[in-house]
């Protein structure tokens, strides 16, 4: 299978804390790739470096055969990586529909002049943005709440809305930061179906998750970080039995 994202020797430290140490990994086209590790292992830091929110101290990415410019988040987005956040970041006072419409920013081009003149081109573009946004709300199953403010949605629906907004960017890689955090079993089950559906539609998914059952059941391959270092990268069955992984999660044998 083709490699979609390759990270080579990513380093990032905050003061004296080395949050990522020489992390290298490859994500293949069309797979669900899990990123797991104990708290503080550097998973979210990796996401933030990848999506341009933090500047890396060293290393680089290649994405879809090109070097990835991580100098600014919007460049990463333009390259085709969309993400969600561990602590949901929606546009709280915009409606669900508007949130998804913002996600179409890169796929539309009307500027000030187009907006003011509202010529045929702008009108059809706006209609297309809205149509796609409604489709996506249906896809994630919250179309009933299209006109509700994002902040008034239930927790699970907010997670779904964030995914819909990310999907609106038509990404090649969807990076989900703990999408099941705080969800009950039913919501997690629905989320799992949603992510499997994304995979079936050909999307590549990078998934940070604490719910080990979800990760093991869903992911094609898993990488494990511990104290900023990669300690394992393989199919879930093998990672599960890796002594280093067990040690990282459960603590090492004494003496």
């Amino acid at each position: 299978m083709n490699v979609l994202l390759e990270a080579v020797g990513i380093n990032k430290s905050f003061g004296g804390v080395q949050a990522l140490r020489d992390v290298s990994l490859t994500i293949r086209q069309g797979e669900i790739y899990g990123l797991i590790g104990p708290n503080g292992a550097g998973k979210t830091t990796f996401f933030n470096v990848l999506t341009g929110l933090y500047a890396a101290d060293g290393g680089g990415f290649s994405f879809d055969g090109q070097p990835l410019d991580i100098a600014a988040p919007h460049l990463v987005a333009a390259a085709g990586i969309a993400r969600t956040f561990q602590n949901i970041r929606l546009f709280a006072n915009m409606t669900a529909l508007e949130n998804v419409m913002v996600g179409r920013h890169l796929k539309s081009r009307a500027g000030v002049i187009g907006a003011v003149l509202k010529n045929a081109g702008t009108r059809s573009e706006e209609a297309a943005i809205e149509r796609r946004a409604v489709e996506l709300l249906h896809y994630v199953g919250i179309a009933d709440h299209a006109n509700a403010l994002a902040r008034h949605l239930s927790y699970g629906d907010q997670r779904r809305l964030e995914i819909a907004r990310a999907l609106a960017m038509e990404p090649k890689l969807l990076a989900l930061d703990e999408p099941a955090a705080g969800m009950n079993a039913t919501e997690t089950g629905a989320l799992r179906l949603l992510i499997e559906g994304l995979k079936n539609d050909g999307l590549t998914v990078l998934l940070i998750e604490h719910d080990v059952k979800l990760v093991m059941g869903l992911c094609d391959r898993v990488v494990v970080l511990d104290y900023g270092e990669k300690i394992a990268e393989d199919v879930p069955e093998k990672v599960r039995r890796d002594p280093k992984v067990i040690e990282a999660y459960l603590g090492g044998a004494v003496a």
Partner: peptide, 23 residues
């Protein structure tokens, strides 16, 4: 418009706006 939505998105959450591809 697209521009107006981008403005409001920045007002609401600048980080999220950036990751949505807004310059």
């Amino acid at each position: 418009s697209r521009i107006g939505r981008a403005w409001v998105a920045i007002r609401e959450d600048e980080v999220a706006a950036k990751t949505c591809g807004i310059n």
